[in-house]
Simulated scan of single mutants.
Amino acid sequence: MVSSCINCEHCIGEKCQLDWEIGQMGKVGIVLFGPSLDAVSGVSSHVKLLMASSLADRYKLMHFQVGREGRAENKWQRMARFAFSPLQLAVFLVRKKPRIVHINTSMDRKAFWRDLTYLIVARLLGCRVVNQFHSGSAPQSLFSSPLLSSILKRFLLASHVVTVLSSGAVRSHRAFDSRIAVELVPNAIDTKGLLDVERERPVGGAPLRLVFVGRIIRSKGLFESLAALKLLKDQGLGFELRVAGSGPDEAEVLESIARLGLTSEVTLLGPVFGAEKDRLWLGSDVQVFPTYHNEGLPYSILESMAAGCVPITCPVAAIPDVMRDGVHGLFVPAHDPAAVAAAIRRLADNRAELLCMSAAGRQRIAENYTVDRLAARFGEIYERVA
């Protein structure tokens, strides 16, 4: 009876769970806050990268779901979640007994009040707090009221470490209060399927293969890109643009494509993921992404450079920390279709420069923006904070 029980599927599953629990004994517990791991979200991607990294060998990593991304709920359910989630967090922390709470947040008002409550709960229960900001906003811009700014300052000072994505954000936090323990920790990507795949050498004189990957909203610069392509088409330049993503301005984008006479050159693919997205990056020459959105560090910039797809973008948030103008890609001013058109024309007319930028971008990502680098950086922080 015993031997047959050991071989049954149910008991094998229980043994695996027991082995895992034994393996976690003695490890420092860390709770990573973030949306559902199934959500299409930059923060979800970040949390999944950390949980699958080498950090899992050193620490007991746990996920606590926050936010509405990945949830199907109505207004009343959202209100109930907002009201009761601090209690849920308290119960979670009492049961799991982590040493560190890692809050993933952004510098906006709704997230601030939620995460302030979470920080209070965590500190009252004796947890250390790592507060990671994923947006490019400066703390000085969140509130105009001196009282509310004072509360924000206390929130940041109550965090044992605050991490941000750009050198500019480090400066703005130190200017807000020099006592804030702020550190620079840029995003990273899983480079498998991008860096380790050799690109096909583009055929000289062939139409430039352009790509946009991201949420279809006006502030990502897609409308300026379409206006730029209209200028280039009128000049007789050949090209193709593939747009991957979805968003609230998708219908307006379709109208603009038709109005500008670009239906033969521009294709909307809808959302793409995984290997399909990797193939899209590897099969494109230039990423057209003149964003003026409140970015942190867009994953699309890191992914395109890893694939050797040269970015044309705006120098906002953490992007200038990653790429140098004329070395890894080209910077253009926001809201400037003529500048976007000139940048595309420059790369179309100088394929040798395009190839140099492609190689330089891949090297830049390999040296600075891998998951191993991200895990090592947070490992240092966790060790100090714990």
Rank of each mutant, 00 (worst) to 15 (best):
N7V: 03
G13L: 12
C16F: 01
C16E: 14
L18R: 14
E21A: 14
E21C: 09
I22Y: 10
G23T: 13
G23M: 11
G29C: 10
V31C: 12
F33D: 11
P35H: 01
S36L: 03
H46F: 14
V47A: 04
L49H: 12
L50K: 12
L50Y: 10
S54M: 10
S54E: 15
R58W: 01
R58H: 13
Y59E: 10
M62I: 04
F64T: 11
Q65L: 05
R68C: 01
R68H: 06
E73T: 08
Q77M: 12
P86N: 11
L89I: 08
L89F: 08
A90T: 09
P98H: 10
P98W: 05
D108M: 00
K110L: 00
A111T: 11
W113L: 05
L116Q: 08
I120M: 13
R123I: 02
F133A: 00
S135H: 01
S137M: 01
P139M: 09
P146R: 09
L152T: 12
K153C: 13
R154T: 12
H160P: 07
T163V: 06
V170Q: 05
S172R: 04
R174E: 07
R179D: 06
I180D: 02
K192Q: 15
K192V: 15
L194V: 11
L194P: 11
D196Q: 14
G205V: 04
G205H: 04
P207C: 03
L208E: 03
L210D: 10
F212G: 10
V213S: 07
G214I: 06
R215M: 02
G221C: 05
G221D: 03
F223E: 02
F223T: 06
S225Y: 08
S225C: 15
K230C: 08
L232K: 06
K233H: 13
Q235L: 09
G238A: 14
E240A: 12
L241N: 05
S246I: 00
A251M: 11
S256M: 13
S256W: 02
L260R: 14
E265Y: 03
T267G: 03
G270K: 02
P271G: 00
V272Q: 15
V272M: 14
F273H: 15
F273G: 08
E276F: 00
W281F: 03
S284V: 09
D285I: 00
V288T: 11
V288M: 04
Y292I: 03
H293A: 09
H293W: 14
E295N: 10
G296D: 05
A307S: 15
G308N: 08
G308M: 04
C309E: 10
C309V: 08
C309I: 06
V316A: 09
V316W: 06
A317I: 05
A318W: 09
P320W: 03
M323Y: 01
D325P: 10
H328R: 03
A339P: 07
V340K: 02
V340F: 00
A341R: 02
A341W: 00
A343G: 04
L347N: 02
N350V: 01
A352K: 13
M357W: 00
M357K: 00
S358W: 01
R364H: 07
A366Q: 13
R373D: 04
